[in-house]
C-alpha cells in the first residue's frame, strides 16, 4: 500500500483511503447488527460504534503499513 496517493493530482495520504474504507465497513456492520437486533447485547451503542470503528481502522492501518 503506497504511503501517498494522487487523488485528482492532489497527493493525499494512503491512510485517507483506509479511513474511508473503514467507514464503509462500519456502515455495513452497523446495518447488519441493527438488522438482527444485536444491539441489545451492547451497553452503549454510540460508544460501541466508535470503538468498532477504531478497531477496524487501527487493525487495517497496522496491517497495511507494516
Amino acid at each position: 500500500m503506497p504511503l501517498e496517493i494522487a487523488l485528482g493530482d492532489a497527493l493525499v495520504p494512503g491512510m485517507l483511503l483506509v479511513y474511508l474504507g473503514c467507514l464503509l465497513v462500519l456502515w455495513a456492520v452497523d446495518t447488519i447488527v441493527g438488522r438482527y437486533g444485536l444491539y441489545r447485547y451492547v451497553w452503549h451503542p454510540s460508544l460501541f460504534r466508535v470503538a468498532v470503528f477504531f478497531v477496524l481502522f487501527g487493525a487495517a492501518g497496522l496491517l497495511l503499513y507494516p
Binding site: 451497553w43 470503538a51 468498532v52 477504531f54 481502522f57 487501527g58 492501518g61 503499513y65
Partner: peptide, 29 residues
C-alpha cells in the same frame, strides 16, 4: 446487563490499544 457492559468494555479497550498503536506507528515509523 453484565454481559452488555463487558462486551462494550472489551471492544472499547481493544479500540484504545489499537488506536494508540496506530498513532505511535504513524508518528514514529
Amino acid at each position: 446487563a453484565l454481559l452488555r457492559f463487558s462486551i462494550t468494555a472489551v471492544v472499547v479497550i481493544v479500540a484504545l490499544v489499537l488506536g494508540h498503536a496506530l498513532w505511535r506507528h504513524y508518528m514514529y515509523s
